[in-house]
Amino acid sequence: MIVVMSRSDRQSFGLAVEELSNAHRTSTDLCSPFLRVLPVTGVAISTLGAPFGTETVCASDASAARLDELQFDLGEGPCWEALTTRRPVLNSDIRHHGNPAWPVFTQSIDETDVGSVFAFPMVVGTLDIGAVDLYSRRPRTLTGVQIADATMLVKIAARQVLRRVLLSHTMKPDPDADEGYSRRVVHQATGMVLAQLNVGASDALLILQGYAFSHARTVREVADDVVARKVDFTSELNGS
């Protein structure tokens, strides 16, 4: 079956992209844009594991928050699998077709009003940030277009979450941060990351900062290693 998206649907999606992209300037709730353009009941966005910690960044309702809490407590579920595999986990009828890898989580779902769950990994370059969980009270599927739209929104949300994490944590101080040479090295390293990962300049710098934070190093130290080709984000992303 061919699904034709109306012009209003695409306009709504464009507005959601714009709103999410500007969230760091407007302090917009990160969950709301997903609800406006996707046929789901609730959304939860969370960071998972080291180094960013395991916590809910935002949840659209109590059921979405509970979905996150269950997975945190049990250490299993779609959000963990999505981040581990770096692939979306799409479960259209979780009560009847739960994943054998999440036996306790699937059983715990009986206590909630969740019928289907869709988990998308939040990654920025080589950094594993967390996941976005979308749920519906009834079993349902997402179309290819809806999956693509969700993936795009999740990519934007990942950058916003990383920005918020870096702002809320103290990074290792760099005594040379104000020196011209230091700025030139960071600028050069940013350009190299940009080329390695085919991302924009702001995202490349964000990846440098996130990598430095996750390894308890200064941005200057990481930039030096990137320029010296001791750190190659392409290799890191491929696991080599």
Score class of each variant (00 low, 15 high):
E76R: 00
G239D: 11
T26K: 09
D61R: 02
G191F: 01
Q107I: 05
Q160K: 00
R86F: 04
R159L: 03
P51Y: 01
D224E: 15
F118E: 08
T84P: 03
L167Q: 14
L38G: 10
V226Y: 11
V3P: 09
N91Q: 11
P139C: 02
G239E: 08
A223T: 05
P103H: 08
Q107Y: 09
G98R: 03
G42K: 05
T26L: 11
P33C: 02
Q196Y: 07
A64C: 07
S108C: 11
L67H: 15
F213L: 07
Q146E: 15
S136T: 14
F233M: 12
I2V: 14
A50Q: 09
A148E: 14
R95I: 03
D113H: 12
V114Y: 05
Y135F: 15
G53Q: 07
H96N: 15
L237N: 04
G77N: 05
I156P: 10
S8E: 14
S60F: 03
Y135D: 13
V165A: 03
A148R: 06
V43Y: 08
R163Y: 12
P33W: 05
V154P: 13
V43A: 05
L90I: 08
L30V: 07
D225A: 09
F34R: 00
L197I: 01
V231A: 08
D93L: 04
R86M: 10
T190Q: 12
G14I: 01
D232Q: 08
H97L: 03
S46K: 07
E81D: 13
G210V: 04
A16P: 12
W102D: 14
D61F: 01
L15P: 05
R159W: 02
T234Y: 14
D93M: 04
S116Q: 08
L70C: 06
F233N: 04
A189W: 03
H97E: 12
D113C: 11
D149H: 06
V123E: 11
I2G: 09
H187R: 11
V186S: 00
P121Y: 03
V219Y: 01
W80Y: 13
L35D: 14
S60R: 04
L48T: 05
R7S: 13
F72C: 03
W80P: 01
T56N: 04
D128Q: 15
P121Q: 01
M152P: 03
W102S: 07
E55A: 10
A204V: 03
D61L: 02
V37I: 02
